[in-house]
């Protein structure tokens, strides 16, 4: 029988109350959001927090999707299903709908939250790669105020983030960059999994901004293939100012793969994952570029 060990349970009445509770319980307290990452770990007793601070009631403060200050702002308590269903999200970031379509399964997406997934910090987390591609940022709140952390600095290692004991991830911000006049944007996410609902063997997200026939800017996120910060910075650098050609995208794929350090596991051996880093980067870029060129699909 897989059941969690004992813990103290507290229901937070507000964000400030949650922070107070976190401070009271210290190091061994964990935030409980949807629970779909944490509770299985607790059942396997791989996680044994002494206290859980349940923030599921904080929907007024933490469950929202809105555009503000040129950014899409996603409350940490937004569920995967809400992100997938949001027209606002789809309008700006096709990559997020691509990714959500292949994250876990419809039932898990109903309760699993964006903040929970990011804080679980699984090296195979699709959203970490998608947010890295979009060069988003995370708002982390403590009792002394909040700080904004670039998505690419949010994770400090496998299953580790910058969120310190006593802090709470409250929001994800994604810049809506329409760019200079005429710049066109497209994004996409591509994932290979052993089966529907499984974590990726490898996955790539791409965001691209075109200026005429030149790539003005690009963001590339990678999951499960040992990419530093879930991103492919050298490939992005290469693409900046490069011609919007298949050849450019291919080279970007090569660069992405070269800078990965994949760890073999049951999903695949290292050489295959490295191959996927390249192959899927190219595929994501191709789709992103196609979308940038055909905004008729409802995507700017």
């Amino acid at each position: 029988m897989q059941v969690p060990a004992h813990f103290e349970y507290e229901k937070a009445a507000s964000v400030s109350h949650a922070l107070l509770l976190l401070a009271r319980y210290g190091q061994d307290a964990r935030i409980l959001a949807g629970g779909h990452s944490l509770i299985p770990m607790m059942k396997l007793r791989l996680a044994q927090p002494e206290a859980l601070v349940d923030i599921n009631g904080l929907t007024d403060e933490l469950r929202y999707l809105r555009v503000s200050g040129g950014e899409l702002r996603i409350g940490a308590l937004v569920t995967h299903a809400q992100l997938l269903e949001s027209e606002l999200v789809g309008q700006h970031f096709a990559i997020l709908h691509d990714a959500e379509q292949v994250i876990a399964d419809p039932i898990v997406r109903n309760w699993g939250t964006i903040g929970g997934s990011l804080c679980q910090a699984d090296p195979s987390e699709d959203l970490s790669a998608a947010f890295a591609a979009l060069k988003g940022s995370m708002v982390v709140q403590g009792r002394d105020g909040s700080r904004v952390v670039p998505a690419r600095e949010f994770h400090t290692g496998p299953y580790e983030t910058v969120v310190a004991p006593g802090e709470l991830l409250t929001e994800i911000r994604l810049p809506i960059r329409t760019g200079a006049a005429g710049a066109r944007h497209g994004s996409a996410y591509v994932k290979v999994a052993r089966r529907v609902g499984d974590w990726p063997v490898g996955a790539a997200g791409a965001a691209i901004w075109l200026s005429g026939d030149t790539i003005a800017d690009a963001g590339i996120g990678l999951a499960a293939v040992g990419a530093r910060n879930f991103a492919a910075a050298p490939a992005e650098e290469f693409l900046r100012g490069a011609p919007a050609s298949t050849q450019s995208l291919r080279r970007a794929g090569q660069l992405a793969a070269e800078h990965c350090q994949p760890v073999p596991d049951q999903r695949g051996p290292a050489d295959y994952k490295r191959h996927l880093a390249s192959e899927l980067t190219v595929r994501a870029l191709v789709t992103a570029m196609r979308r940038a060129r055909t905004p008729a699909a409802g995507r700017p």
Partner: peptide, 17 residues
């Protein structure tokens, strides 16, 4: 749970309070 299908082996009873 509140009109949405959920996997109840991954939800604490406390969360259903």
């Amino acid at each position: 749970l509140d009109d949405v299908p959920v996997k109840s082996c991954t939800v604490l009873t406390a969360m259903a309070d």
